[in-house]
Design a protein around this nucleic acid. Structure first.
Lengths: 206, 206
DNA sequence: ACCTGAACACCGTTCAAGT
DNA sequence: ACCTGAACACCGTTCAAGT
């Protein structure tokens, strides 16, 4: 079950001295996750797979949570962002991207749990945020509402956004201030109003 | 930090032979959680606190997840359901109960994580569901929409409802079929439509 | 039925020491 | 800077045996 492609890092073929690299480690971690679930992606198990001791991995990851976050972001690279650039209603395209996001998360349930716990800040996650914000702007939402809406849409399946790389993601950076505006109570109240207004405005199909 | 009230189950005062009871075990587990977080509520730690070995606890809980679920439900007893019976707008009262629910969850973040992972089925959780359904009905929502809305409102902070005690919770039982109607895709699509309709209908305050 | 000691098979993380 | 062996302080769960 665990050996589909030739393993580049098998214990057999590698020299005694390992050449650890961040991406290589994450790739191996993803392999373990696909084969056995995130619960088996432990420092010790991963180190064993890489023919080294667990201590070696602490050069690359401060702790296990950081390792899992790296695995999550790697998987987020599979989210299909292409609908954003296609023709058609922005709402439909937005839903297509979000559905792809949820699909990736729920393809591996243990991973979905991580997404609910860690605060993502990896490249792929930020690409997703930037793409979603672009579509909300396209839909005519002002910065403030777009930021809150983004937050809510993602929180709906996962959790709130925390930090962004301002340089790399201009639109995200622009929305940042709005993203953190308001008290937690105000935002929560707004969230519930959105839900209730939406519920009242949206009959169940059929 | 961990000793505020006199500990009824301290190792000192108890006889050699312990008298374990389900509620007693959960109470001790809650104590540990409040003092040190859910991460320290382990079979071994809890057994130590109860002056026994971890194996003894497997009579009461099939595994650690079940233990944590019991702790969660115990805490859910603190959710303030009283707004449901007060006068005033049903929307306001609904939001007050939901806010109390979220408040309880987020008062202990490690507990909130559990709520996202386990499928609650305890007494206190079912009381909450029944109360929320009553207010949605009061608001004029037909059974189908109320069921889906309930699901969505709770999922917004936690996760989907799974099973209910039909006898004890008549309204929940009545909504049950609706609660599971539709394909997952249909429900997801409806959820997104609700969110987007709500977002478009709800300007940010100020 | 309930409770137990002991064992099995794991964990995360740190540290002093090497290169 | 990167890598390591070894140690410390934990885990969940099962099982045979007791009451």
């Amino acid at each position: 079950v665990t050996s589909e492609a030739p393993q580049p890092r098998s214990r057999r073929e590698r020299p005694a001295k390992s050449a650890l690299t961040g991406p290589g480690i994450v790739a191996t971690a993803v392999e373990i996750m696909r084969g056995e679930g995130l619960g088996r992606v432990t420092m010790r198990r991963l180190a064993h797979e890489l023919d080294t001791g667990p201590a070696s991995l602490y050069v690359y990851f401060r702790n296990t949570a950081e390792l899992h976050a790296a695995v999550l972001d790697e998987l987020l690279g599979e989210v299909d962002l292409s609908p954003a650039a296609e023709p058609g209603e922005w709402r439909d395209r937005l839903v297509r991207v979000l559905t792809s996001y949820i699909g990736v998360l729920y393809a591996n349930p243990s991973l979905a749990r991580t997404a609910l716990v860690v605060r993502p800040r990896g490249r792929h996650y930020l690409d997703l945020v930037e793409t979603l914000l672009a579509m909300l702007h396209e839909g005519g939402l002002a910065t403030g509402r777009a930021a809150w809406a983004l937050d809510m849409l993602l929180q709906f399946a996962t959790r709130a956004l925390r930090a962004v790389d301002e340089h790399r993601y201009p639109r995200t950076a622009a929305a940042r201030e709005e993203l953190f505006s308001g008290t937690p109570e105000t935002r929560l109240a707004w969230n519930f109003q959105v839900l209730l207004n939406g519920i009242l405005a949206t009959p169940v199909p059929r």
